[in-house]
Write a protein that binds this DNA or RNA. Structure first.
Length: 607
RNA sequence: CCGGGCAUGGCGCAGCUUGGCAGCGCGCGUGGUUUGGGACCACGAGGCCGCAGGUUCAAAUCCUGUUGCCCGGACCA
């Protein structure tokens, strides 16, 4: 390692060459010189960057794009990631997790065992090795972990246990975006727990839930909200996602103003109240060329919530349609439809033979081959306008119960801003965007069963352990912290994850007084275990401060001929909340105290 | 995967319509003057104009194909 002062033949100090001056017992080199720091910082915004974290991380020399959704991390980012991982490790160890490491590449045979080699789409990168064997790059590690432990716990006495690792995932996303927000290759902490009863899993799930709250709080994101979520390809029933609420998020969240209800839009219950209306006779209305809800509403002068619309889906292009009927002002939630049908479906349009495009309605479809689904918003609805399944005509006076007595109603609609909250019943639903930082699933026995993991229970019976799994995206978390905490000039890293704790700016390092004061300060800080980035370059104050802003180190110590003349060091916080002159010989102790104080606020590793 | 856009030195861009020495700003190097918020002067280095074909005396520019990247959407543990 680079820790020892290795001298080259020419007498070059190896550590100084790499910009390292000393090393903490943890193994992380703690002091770095700006003149040696690898990476460029930019004044101008790179053309492809759209969101703050992407812009600032590229401009600050943290990350470099290698390909679509693939990034290299430069030293400042690597240091942040290391600190985030350290927090995660502490919290995982704290809930009795044992760290392991599974491989990224593995034989496809393992994924064939679980069935996912075929069930997962092209996000799973498949390839062949030189012998022609099918291989995959892990996009998640259930298979690898079950393979690791399936022979290791043959008795109930070994349960419960949890293993976790921090490892690269590759997911061949069709569309990467937003810098580190949605990538193809990334680091994930994923944990897997094994239990002999559902109750035990639930107890552990709760512990992990709490650990996640601590992790996000400690990383500087106390507002992360846990929402109920769809379990998707993972299988299992209960799942939560930990969402960082932000406009740049890709997920849609349903939150409540009045209570603590929170859910991913995909699974949020949509509650509607049928409008008060009398039954009216069903009558045909001529609506020539009027096909969209918008047109129907203005042509017949009705509100969208007084209409019934049909949305067509198909399993694949050649299949019979699935027709979802719902109130005209609502949107279909495709995830709900998929979960109900337990089949994949895709939006499509009505075709010759199965329905009349633009005039689909629930009345008179007897004998139609389409699978008909009725949303709950139509339950008890009366007097609606609906398609008449006849070119150029709609029905007025459609009443679901009377006209479609056999209809079974289920929840297929997306909820909306101001809708009734399933938690408290107020009209208090709020729609927000969020970034999924982590998720936790109660998996059940899907993988232990498919992959033959068994144990002998107390009663002598052979059983499959019940699993839970728990993930956190590391780089995405870093980007989210940046989104949460930055100004126009750069990130403002919380002390707990900051790449360095103190940034010493030696303005005019050619000045002997400045140089010796800076060296003494850096030396004293290092000795007390503080991580220091020292700007030893001969650059103008503007350049030095701009770079410091981009590096976002929480405490800045400025030494210049002016401060030296006064015998002082200027100590500032990056967030501008603090600025004070401190006597030069007391500066190290003062800064050390400040670092400690700021660490305590967020709860960094080892505190 | 659908739709749109872009590709010219490390970064940001102009040049392309109408073919004729490859340019500007930032950054980088050297020397000097500066020195508390991206300083100034001088000199300098750096580019097969994404790639492959084609048209032409001549292609960054026109034509064909192809690849990559970005944005919106679909999709997604």
């Amino acid at each position: 390692m680079l820790g020892a002062a290795v001298k080259f033949d020419g007498g070059l100090d190896f550590r100084a060459f790499w910009g390292y001056n000393s090393k903490k017992p943890s193994g992380r080199e703690c002091s770095v010189k700006m003149s040696r720091l690898v990476g460029m910082r930019f004044k101008e915004t790179p053309a492809e960057c759209q969101i703050a974290s992407h812009i600032l991380l590229v401009r600050g020399g943290y990350i470099k794009n290698v390909g679509s959704g693939i990034f290299s991390l430069l030293p400042p980012a690597k240091r942040i990631v290391d600190k985030i991982e350290a927090i995660i490790r502490e919290e995982m160890d704290n809930i009795d997790g044992q760290e392991v490491l599974c491989p990224v590449s593995m034989p496809a045979a393992l994924w064939k065992e679980s069935g996912r080699f075929d069930s997962v789409g092209s996000e799973l990168l498949r390839f062949k090795d030189r012998s022609g064997s099918d291989m995959v790059l892990a996009m998640t590690h259930e298979e690898a972990v079950v393979h690791m432990v399936r022979d290791a716990a043959p008795s109930y006495a070994s349960y419960p246990f949890m293993v976790y690792h921090i490892q690269t995932k590759f997911r061949d996303e069709p569309r990467a975006r937003g810098g580190l927000i949605r990538v193809r290759e990334f680091t994930m902490k994923d944990a897997y727990s094994f239990h002999t009863s559902q109750e035990d899993l639930e107890r552990y799930y709760e512990r992990c839930y709490k650990a996640y709250e601590r992790i996000f709080t400690r990383a500087g994101l106390p507002e992360v909200v846990a929402v109920k979520s769809d379990s998707g390809m993972m299988g299992g029933k209960v799942a939560h996602e930990f969402m960082f609420v932000t406009d740049v998020g890709e997920d849609t969240l349903v939150l409540c103003d009045q209570c603590d209800y929170s859910s991913n839009m995909e699974v949020a219950e949509c509650i509607t109240v049928p409008a008060e209306a009398e039954d009216a006779p069903l009558e045909l209305a001529e609506t020539p060329g009027i096909k969209t809800i918008e047109d129907v509403c203005s042509f017949l002068s009705v509100a969208p919530e007084r209409t019934c619309k049909a949305v067509i889906y198909r399993k694949n292009a050649t299949d019979e349609p699935v027709m979802v009927f719902l109130r005209g002002d609502l949107e279909v939630c495709e995830t709900k439809v998929r979960n109900f049908l337990k089949e994949d479906i895709h939006p499509d349009t009505a075709r010759e033979g199965d329905a009349v495009y633009g005039y689909c309605g629930p009345v008179g479809l007897a004998g139609n081959k389409a699978r008909l689904l009725f949303d709950r918003s139509l339950q008890g609805a009366r007097g609606l306008v609906a398609g008449a399944n006849k070119e150029g005509f709609h029905y007025k006076g459609f009443s679901t119960e009377r006209d479609c007595p056999d209809a079974e109603h289920h929840d297929f609609a997306k909820t909306y801003e101001g809708a009734v909250c399933p938690g408290c019943g107020h009209n208090s639903v709020r729609i927000r965007r969020g970034i999924e930082l982590g998720n936790i699933f109660q998996l059940g026995t899907k993988y232990s069963q498919a992959m033959g993991m068994r144990y002998i229970d107390k009663d002598g019976a052979e059983k499959h352990p019940i699993m839970g799994c728990y993930g956190i995206g590391v780089e995405r978390l870093m980007a989210s912290v940046c989104e949460e905490s930055h100004d126009d000039n750069g990130p403002i890293w919380p002390m707990s994850v900051a790449p360095w704790q103190v940034h010493v700016c030696a303005l005019r390092s050619d000045d002997e007084g400045v140089k010796s004061t800076a060296e003494a300060l850096v030396d004293a800080l290092e000795k007390s275990g503080v991580e220091v980035l020292v700007d030893d370059r001969s650059v103008s104050a503007g350049v030095m401060f701009s770079d410091a802003d981009l590096l976002g180190v929480p405490i800045r110590a400025i030494i210049s001929p002016k401060t030296v003349a006064r015998g002082m060091v200027e100590v500032k916080k990056r967030d501008k909340s603090f600025s004070q002159d401190v006597a030069a010989d007391e500066a190290a102790a003062f800064i050390r105290g400040l670092v400690k104080e700021m660490l305590d606020e967020t709860g960094a590793v080892g505190v």
